[in-house]
Design a protein around this nucleic acid. Sequence first.
DNA 1: CAAACCAATTTGGTAAACCAGTTTTAGAAA
DNA 2: TTTCTAAAACTGGTTTACCAAATTGGTTTG
Lengths: 235, 235
Amino acid sequence: MTTEILPKNENDSIQKEIISKIRDYINFKNLEPGDKLPSERKLSEKFEVSRGNVREAIQTLESYGLLYSKPQSGTFIADIGPVAMNGMINDILRLEEPDFKTLVETRILLELKTVRLAALRRTEEDLKEIEEALEAYAEKVMKGEDAVQEDLLFHLAIAKAAGNSTINTFMLTITPEIITNFAKYHVCDKNVAFTGIQEHRDVYEAIKKKDPQLAKEKMKIHFKLLYQYCYNIND
Amino acid sequence: MTTEILPKNENDSIQKEIISKIRDYINFKNLEPGDKLPSERKLSEKFEVSRGNVREAIQTLESYGLLYSKPQSGTFIADIGPVAMNGMINDILRLEEPDFKTLVETRILLELKTVRLAALRRTEEDLKEIEEALEAYAEKVMKGEDAVQEDLLFHLAIAKAAGNSTINTFMLTITPEIITNFAKYHVCDKNVAFTGIQEHRDVYEAIKKKDPQLAKEKMKIHFKLLYQYCYNIND
DNA sequence: CAAACCAATTTGGTAAACCAGTTTTAGAAA
DNA sequence: TTTCTAAAACTGGTTTACCAAATTGGTTTG
């Protein structure tokens, strides 16, 4: 068992090990789309791991669309040729844990998009929900209380109004990590919050006016502080 | 049991049911960060579902950073206040299955970003891998064979060179869905591939020259066909 | 009276057993 | 030899039983 890079936990490590062994097996046997993989039981004894571990690895590859399982039948190679199969598995194996800088970089990218789309596509109901989130945020700040949660919900409301379920999913994925790191690095100080109210209002007004360009500009201003953490953003 | 929107499968449905019940429980008991949730066994009998289903729901909420489990101890509320907890769970529950249009819209957004970052940050090794992917693609096309896989790997190589692990993860997430839908809607015809070679070369040259603006322009041209599926892209 | 210790219970995690379809196979009939 | 059928073996999915760590409450001890 090769221990190349120390992973965050043991479980993640052995799953990657299994995935790479599955890749090797697919290559060795020249499995093509539609071909059947050995049963979970056989793989587990061949790799000398528990069946649960094998199932976990298969489900991961299934989530990337590389395999598919038919109940009471078997696990099969998806409709992806060997070249792409190898390339994608290798990419999956070398995926790094997202760090704070790339999280922020990605969040800014996504939000500058969602705010434009929200300005273009928002319904009256969307607008109302954004306004409610804005007021809840402002109220909290005026009381001098911490308003990180309300801040977050304002941005999520905009993402929802953008009407892009894929981006929405991504926003939800990175949000908790962002919060954790914000707290760790003390990005959001109390004094920032007051200026934040007006910035939020500006964004809201631009969405209300259905002006995508203005909305994007105002969001950029709102993200000015974050830019410090994130070089090479000048779109 | 309320059946609001028909889900894609039964399993997904009951998991959402359980998640909403967990949300209700957290609200009813006013659980705050650090508070302990009842054990999986108690929740399973309270909700009248199997313990496996409860575990699945908890793991989903764990993946969004809303709960965390300590072995042989219990499951706890993460460091997120009740307002954000409710907002995020509600967002999670109403997440729609990504459709083709939002997938393409998101892919274009991500790739226009990665190609810029790749032009700025690429190492010599990155460049070499991109070139290899390009040549493999061109070779396949010249032989008149299907080159969807090689096309995909070229784009993934660029994403890798962008050096943003978060975006990279997202690219890997949507790629299989894109492929599936491409095949379904016959987006990539054979005749497109020949013009694709030069377009790929242009993108590659721009990355080689470390010209982010040019790289983005060339990628835009390459995505011209995709634009048809995706209105409101004019960034 | 407080602190330290110990056993019993509770916990999330995991491996084993079980289930309901599917696939293969062996055998009998034509 | 071929074809059809029934049963046995196999499969992924699910439930159940078990495990070891950690918490808890009571007891003992300094």
